[in-house]
Amino acid sequence: MNIEAIVFYLFSAITIIAAIGVITVKNSVQAVLCLVLTFFSASALWLLLEAEFLAITLVLVYVGAVMVLFLFVVMMLDVDFAALKQGFAKQLPLGLLVGFALFGAVYWVIRSQVFGTDKIPEPAKHEQGYSNVEELGRLLYGEYFYPFEIAGVILLVAIIAAISLTFRGRRERKGQSVREQHRVTKEERLKIVSMDSEEQYADMEITDTKQDEETTL
């Protein structure tokens, strides 16, 4: 067993254990930290594949930025995860059944007899001086420029959608909104309550009501 295989198995094991940890640990902060560990060991696996740039990006972007933000969100929001997990035991048998069935199916189609190294050629090793970044740049801005641009548009739409769904106007301003006033309907301003006529008063001021009736008639 060469050193490469040892490193691969070590980091694969860490990835799998950490990934299981993400969905099993009770504390949500620990779950996020498990996810960080998963990304970290996955980036080590990418290094083995000679995808150095992607490995570094994974650490910098996901571990460094995205997951830290996520950690902030999880720590600041007081989500009652115990309540979310209610009914877990009830759904467990079905979940296990579906999970194992899917695992079995996926294993069956990618077992070594079907999808082994004899069927699929091993990726060629690159010679020394091969630049990952240059190759990626060439692909992204050359051959894949069209999908790359669309990915940019998707990010733009994500910004527009997120802002339009969360922006509620400036809150410190105390002015009138003419638009809201124009759009107001009768139902919003006037509340019609149906109630019985109050007999007690009617008895006491019987003369008054009679007079009223006469005038209305």
Binding site: A151, I154, V157, S164
Partner: peptide
């Protein structure tokens, strides 16, 4: 438009996502 003129799985998928993302936001409006 991107979706229907996609000739690779990548551009098809990106077109689909671009469309779906807008639709999610429109439903949540």
């Amino acid at each position: 438009m991107v979706l229907v003129s996609g000739a690779s799985l990548l551009s098809l998928y990106l077109g689909l996502e671009l469309m779906s993302l807008c639709l999610y936001a429109l439903v949540a409006m």
